[in-house]
Nucleic acid binder design. Sequence first.
DNA 1: TTCGGTATTGATATATTATAACAGGGGTGT
DNA 2: ACACCCCTGTTATAATATATCAATACCGAA
Lengths: 159, 159
Amino acid sequence: MSAIEFSDHDHAACMRSTMQAAEAQCAARGLRLTPVRRRTLEILLAEHRALGAYDLLARLSEEGLGTQPPVAYRALDFLVKAGLAHKIEALNAYVGCVQPGEDHAPAFLICRGCRSVAEAETKPAQSRLGEAARAAGFRIERSVVEAEGLCPACQESDA
Amino acid sequence: MSAIEFSDHDHAACMRSTMQAAEAQCAARGLRLTPVRRRTLEILLAEHRALGAYDLLARLSEEGLGTQPPVAYRALDFLVKAGLAHKIEALNAYVGCVQPGEDHAPAFLICRGCRSVAEAETKPAQSRLGEAARAAGFRIERSVVEAEGLCPACQESDA
DNA sequence: TTCGGTATTGATATATTATAACAGGGGTGT
DNA sequence: ACACCCCTGTTATAATATATCAATACCGAA
Ligand SMILES: [Zn+2]
Ligand SMILES: [Zn+2]
Ligand SMILES: [Zn+2]
Ligand SMILES: [Zn+2]
């Protein structure tokens, strides 16, 4: 749980292994990782940052993979539903998942300086919120846990 | 921590006391609860539900309090900054705060059936996410904790 | 009270994020 | 070939949010 996203790491290897895991997931579950979807995932994974749908679209467009918003939103919807990417609600932006497939309830650390995003694990049922939900008879189906702040690198350049 | 929002309660009294607390807060801190802001807060508090900015604007507009988006967004910004309302990031919508003033880090239970919202307390520093943040050297400034699901009432009508 | 700064409102325009709707293409199994 | 389903291309539009500037209201100091 050490937030590899904010640390120096062999990111080329990080991307390769994540893409392989994504492909394995799709193969196992009969999902089609088409060229647009695959490239979208690569773009998202290229940096551990949140990217807006229209920024993504601009990148896809440069590569001739589509020019209209639905292209980007469809690819993102697919990836999010497949658990290969996540939406960051606080930013209306999207980030590639670094542990694809495991059906997890992720929590995010989001740097407001550089938009880097690290993914942690939650156990929502254990949390104070889970207790409150049980007490109220509320049935949790999905949880959004996002913390905004400054990553180590941006704290230093914070003056 | 009993999520009064989903229970039967004397809501007229609930609103009155919340409005009084809000006024007290504003008085104490030199903030101006102008007519639009006050009415906005009343509308948000009228039900324990999330309301979109444009829905709010429609209500304000019926009452002659303004017709253009900035009217609604300014009032909402004021209330959110003052801690009298909260933005629900997962819905891009807004809800009145039932414990105004205390500088709290709220967590929300959001019903996807009726958009009712209950507010609980978090202690983000205690959470698993807080641990991950400390381990990574990340400095949390703001946290978003939202759980979507079904409230007791909507579970019953869920068929 | 008058002045001058600050906060608020009014109004226009525009930016950003997201979806609806429908036609075309390309496989797969019968 | 045919029907079926999924994916893509395209046009249009919806929903959410902000920038900007002028006019006004408020408030404290002179
Ligand atoms: Zn990496
Ligand atoms: Zn950073
Ligand atoms: Zn109430
Ligand atoms: Zn409900």
